[in-house]
Design a protein around this nucleic acid. Structure first.
Lengths: 199, 199, 199, 199
DNA sequence: AATGAATGAGGATTCATTCAT
DNA sequence: TATGAATGAATCCTCATTCAT
């Protein structure tokens, strides 16, 4: 399914993806039928299969694009920063902001994590994120700035905190992303073994 | 659906629940049909609807029982402990152990969290856990032993770390639960703003 | 799909098979939808899948049963006959009669022969028939009553003649099966290298 | 659909026909979609409908051309031969060779024979072949060289033998066409009531 | 002549649930 | 209590054909 698309084709495809994200996030992957999607966009059923070889493929494409986008956001934010701990801090904040701004995608990623069919796709993306964090952590470790513990465990823990708090505070309660970013960053800094700023 | 059941009825029901948990965890809730379950147990389809009014009801019952069981385990572990921070520590460890020992249920709870149909059921259970943690945290706060931050946020963050690390280290890699409990407890203690033990 | 069926179940299944044979023969396998079949029998769509795991499986079952039935007919006719050439003669006549009486099945077998999906099933059945004929032929060969030629080729050729002439004379033109049996038997006897009876 | 085609148009069309024959023979008529064909040739879907008004029409055209071609081959081989029995012999051999050399087309013809949609087209072509054989047979009959039997039946039987043995020995087992031609010719000569050569 | 896009009816299959026995 | 049978709406996907450009 890597057809060469015309301008119009690209637009149609983007339209389908956009509507699908919305519908999947609102009603769930299983409850959203291909018929729902094409109806929502106002096209015939065949159109869907012109652009995607299956509902599953569409979803995987959404997941991949999302994870790539989030990572790009992190990279942009920490670009040029020397201090590894600052990179981690900024990375966490970038993640929280991305998750807050892309709540639909956050839901989909969360869902996919627990669905055998998509676990692989998710893990690939997550591995990249964890690798990034791990490299910063190892640098900080080498500098003797944090106590020695498995960097991967730390990376995973941070990701989990970011996800969970964004979920509850932003998605459910609509709090300010900056506040939540502070919350997450604080908890994680502590978790890494650093003293808190505002003690 | 709160029929009075005979001894034999209770056993039948337990059999169905046990098999359903296994199948849901292995193949996913959506991919496991009622037919799969009754076939697995070796009974006719009518039996299922004698004990449960729907597939959904069965799943909700599994969720409720699980959450209740996990909490009971935590309560037992911290019973009689004076120090609120020790209660938290023990609570975390109890959670990790329960999750490790009930990996199937962990998967189901994780799944349900992201499924509109079950989110409510999940939230009710989670609220209880968070309340427990919050009360310990507030006590510690009152004693001036941890820096002032929203206890609910802290509770949620700890739960997330426990889930995530158990998932990756125990379910995926088969590591020792005690080691993971240490990992989680360490990270959380730090996140709460406490100095690390082994620094 | 080897469910234990009740009396009623067996009847339903037979009903479905009977109607399917008729419809497949009349309209073709591809043009006959599962919906057509269940509508024809007057049951819901699910019933079909209670008895067969797929449309394909049903068709293969029909093929197998048919081939078995035809062979049984042959066996019955030649039972106890000493002379191998007479066995062949009777076998040919039995085949023609069976084909004439089961014109629907003849069509389905003919169709299946040219469909990749069913070729295997067909070949298995045909192999048995050819083996039967081969054994008679080898006996006749050993007795020096027919010239030496590949028995398998002869067997196949006879089968082809029986099929073709039954097709044209009986199915298309409604001629008398006995006459056609004579025609086929004559041609084959000659093909085997025997003198003709009515010269 | 008898458009006037330019040189280039003819080539395109031939390209489509060639690929379609290959694909139909390999995957079956029903399993080969118009999309498969145009993709295989590397053109857009419109092209197909420029040259053929439907998938069905294309297939019928293939059938007609094939049958015409096979007959031409027979005619060429028997041209100028006086002896009717020799004409039959040569005709059989020509058929076997054509079938061997055009295995794809043989499959398609075989398939078409059992498909209501194409049966008519096939029968027309077959009638011509049978007529040819019948005229030779009647001549031989008039000369008293073969016993009196329905010439059409004999013609059909010979065709069936040629098809079947070519199918099994050449298409499935890759034997030498000349050997198979001998086999078929022998069987048929016997079937006609002639003594065998090598008895 | 040719292309990519679109249509939409049609097809196989699944499955929660109900029911007669 | 329990069973096998039945229901039928819903789902994913295919594909011949048409159309705008």
């Amino acid at each position: 399914m890597s057809r060469q698309l015309t301008q119009r084709g690209e637009e149609r495809k983007a339209q389908l993806v956009a509507y699908a994200i919305e519908a999947f996030a609102r009603d769930g992957y299983h409850s959203t039928s291909v018929a729902d999607i094409v109806d929502g966009v106002g096209v015939g059923k065949g159109v869907f299969y012109w652009y995607f070889s299956s509902k599953e493929e569409l979803f995987v494409e959404i997941l991949r694009t999302s994870q790539r986008d989030m990572r790009r956001r992190q990279q942009r934010e920490i670009h040029g920063i020397e201090d590894p701990l600052e990179r981690i801090d900024l990375g966490i904040r970038a993640a929280v902001h991305w998750l807050a701004e892309n709540n639909d995608l956050r839901r989909l990623i969360e869902f996919a994590r627990n669905e055998a069919t998509f676990a692989t796709a998710i893990q690939k993306g997550q591995k990249v994120l964890v690798e990034d964090a791990r490299s910063h952590l190892e640098e900080a470790l080498a500098q003797g700035r944090i106590p020695a513990r498995d960097p991967e465990a730390l990376a995973l823990a941070m990701l989990a905190v970011a996800n969970q708090l964004t979920h509850v505070y932003i998605a459910e309660r609509g709090e300010d992303p900056d506040m939540v970013a502070d919350l997450v960053a604080d908890f994680c800094r502590g978790g890494l073994g650093l003293a808190l700023d505002h003690s």
